[in-house]
Amino acid sequence: MTATTTRSFHMDAPIRRITFREALDSEFAKIRSVRSTYWTLLICVVLSVGISLLIAAVTSANWDTLSATNRATVDMSSVVAGVYFGVLVVGVLGVLVVSTEYGTGMMRTSLTAFPRRSVLFLAKAVVLTLVVLVTGIIIAFASYGVASPFYTKHGVDLSLSHGANVRALLAVPVYLALVALMGLALGFLLRHTAAAISTLVGLFFVVPIITNFLPGTLGKDLNKIVPSNAGSAMMVTHAATPGSTPTLSPIGGFVALLIWTALLIVPAFWFFRHRDA
């Protein structure tokens, strides 16, 4: 208790310059020491896998009533259909990683410990990406495990010896990671949990509805590139069927989603570097 105890307290180790490594360690310690990380990841896995299973069971039960064109659209994207909702949850995780730091004032403490802002930003993004990638791989293969039998028994080819099927499964973690980064960027830009989550929800669930209303080809073109549809396109393996809603190719979807992410990340990075904390 007495202040004089600081005497026994000296550090003799030489001062080493802080690097990306220290920022990474610190950010990793941050993300694993709050409960919201575990909650969001758990909910994301349960929601994604559960909905994938539900959709598979229902589709399988109603298989006889499906038209030939509908059957042709059943592929790996159906196996991981629950991811459509899981993205919302990892997006929220991305938001929270940043917005809670602003909400509590922790961001100032963080920046005092690590003032090189671009490095800190990068470390945050990398840690989040890694955590979400791992979760995404779990979701992809767990969904495959529980949902694919419902489709294969009707003769759908979901074999992992086909490159397209593996590609579609691996698109899941990539899609989730990019959405988490979009959430992170919104957190940096808006610094407010509710505002950032609302914007994310708007981007994923409201913008597609608006573009649906727009007349002519403009609406259809925009509808293809909105984040949720671009992301879903990444997991499709079947060929486009006549009459179905037009989508981007898997690569096109990936590129579109990358552009969306960049559109948010770049300004977020710039503002983080230049705004007062």
Binding site: M11, R16, R21, S26, S33, R35, G105, M106
Partner: peptide, 27 residues
């Protein structure tokens, strides 16, 4: 520096809060 004692993520334990800062400087 101690600017604002409340500038802490309330969901993190005191130990982990300090650990996060220590790691940021390789301590």
């Amino acid at each position: 520096a101690l600017l604002d004692a409340k500038a802490v993520h309330g969901g993190r334990s005191a130990y982990n809060h300090l650990l996060v800062l220590a790691k940021a400087n390789g301590l």
